[in-house]
Nucleic acid binder design. Structure first.
Lengths: 188, 188, 188, 188
DNA sequence: TATGAATGAGCATTCATTCAT
DNA sequence: AATGAATGAATGCTCATTCAT
């Protein structure tokens, strides 16, 4: 794999951005190269094929791109003292990212829901990390006894629910309610 | 709109059932008339077009069909004394329906995630009914103060999370944890 | 594999005929569904895809179709007493088929030259049968000592040479010369 | 037409060599500028277009290049006393060239079989020269009476047959059998 | 009602070629 | 002279839908 030139990188980034916008705006099933090219201002869908081996690679890159930016964003806002605080920080960071990058999160969830992302398990890291945090909080006595894997599913599902309805919900309220509900459901 | 004959109704039901199986088995994006016809044992995709105006109508009918059966199932298991009990009954009924009709629920969620269902608000009734229940529970002093619409989003999202991962989770554990978490998050 | 209807069979035959004409007229590499559809008077290349799984299947069917008709034609003209007579009959039958079905033979050779025909060895039967005949003639003392496999290659190559230049050669002369040359090269 | 610089000539030769290797390795139909560039170690297919007006010119040059080297090779091994010896020398030289330059011969035949080479008759010189030799041999009484043009087609076709199957045949045997068969078919 | 053949728009992808650098 | 990005036409193929029977 040769190093990509600056121009190449810029074009790929432009196409990835257009793909995110397209997936967020249209249904995943309606997202075609034609629609992406139109949004990116490209003269030909051939240019997408020129920069990406095939549609699967583009989807994978979009997925990995959002995931990386999401994780960087969230990790930068975590690192709190206790598990309860850490969990709260995780939720607040999620909502903050959603506020700033709604299209990215929507596209991310739609890809995960629809496509078999070929990412070697990276996609599940979200869940694993949260389950681990919950387990550690239990061992520290901060959380009550519950199944950490199932609770991680619940927490992420609530986050996803907010993302998918973020068009019609007040995110300030959502953040407050989410933090409160999760805290009540998990504290010892 | 003429009344549908018995044969007509039977054919439509057969196609709807095949569509549900197809959507649950394949990705929504991979669900074609050809795949549905194969699963229904039909000799031609033309028959689907004959019985449904277009693909959108079929999707709408599938959606409404599952929703109606789901609501009947759940309503038959509700009607408890208090709001807390009612909420618990709702959750238990949801998991029970999932246990018996996993493909229906998966198809339902996939349609809602992907397609712009043209149902004039029916799709939201799930949410509205739950929000109403939560509000009533608050008025009765059984639930703490929270935004009922947001909490309804949370509860339904948790249920959806269980549905989408029901292939790899123990539903007994899920039910128990779901009831506990929701109770803790809502009780006054 | 269901039985094919009469209409289906007719359409497939029509498309096969158009494919043969196209391959014989154009280069193999230039033979597209569009060119075939134009020659068959079809309104859409989609119809070819409707009747054949993919291009490879069409090519295989064309190949097998010509091969079968060729073999039937040749076999009906063989069955002579001795090996020398049999060999002569084979050559005469080949030229006769060429006279009546030049496009078929040209298409056949072009497919064999270019495509990896997926026919499970049928394609080589031509060679094998001829080599066997030569061997039997040697055992009967009618042919001199030579490598039957190599001689079979020679004989078929001469036949192919005539086919490919049949546009500018007198087939009567070719037949006479071919019979004479092969006889001289093989008799004991 | 300007004279080509040394660098230009070297590049063209490099591309021609890569094209020969590609055509011999892949099917003619699979030979793309991309495949040729990869085999030549070029960074861009644009370079091929820079050095050759279009694909047809490249194919023509490849064809003429192999033809010239083939003819030089064969001519250097001919010049025998009689026509029978000359014909034998021609065949031996052909097999010798094949032994040393199999890819070149395969590429040559594939181009001739598939593409309409625009060479103003150069391609036929092979045939013409052989036919002339045969005619002279007849006049000298060394060959029997046959149509020289048709016999030339036969001889070249046998040679081509060996080329196309040279992967699975023993060339020593082929040479011996070819010389013997042609001699028997032509001598008076 | 039901069939299956037909339609034509749409898809992702490959290709030779052009062009600015 | 060389690069690699860009172009747009062409490819095989799938799709929902129509239509004659």
């Amino acid at each position: 794999m040769r190093a990509k030139s600056v121009t190449e990188q810029a074009r790929r980034a432009q196409i990835v951005a257009a793909a995110i916008a397209t997936i967020a705006e249209l249904d995943y099933a309606e997202t075609s190269f034609k629609a992406i090219a139109a949004r990116a201002g490209l003269s030909s869908t051939g240019l997408i094929s020129y920069h990406f081996k095939n549609k699967q690679e583009l989807v994978d890159v979009v997925f990995a791109d959002v995931l990386e930016r999401f994780q960087d964003f969230v990790n930068a806002r975590m690192g709190q003292a206790g598990a309860r605080e850490e969990l709260r920080a995780f939720l607040v960071a999620n909502i903050a990212f959603l506020r700033e990058h709604r299209a990215d999160m929507v596209a991310f969830l739609r890809i995960r829901a629809n496509a078999a992302v070929t990412d070697g398990g990276i996609a599940a890291s979200d869940h694993t990390a949260l389950a681990t945090l919950l387990r550690q909080g239990q061992e520290a006595g901060e959380f009550r006894a519950f199944d950490p894997d199932v609770m991680a599913v619940f927490v992420l599902a609530m986050r996803n629910g907010v993302v998918l309805r973020s068009g019609s919900l007040d995110l300030d309220v959502c953040e407050q309610e989410l933090v409160a509900a999760v805290d009540l459901a998990t504290r010892s």
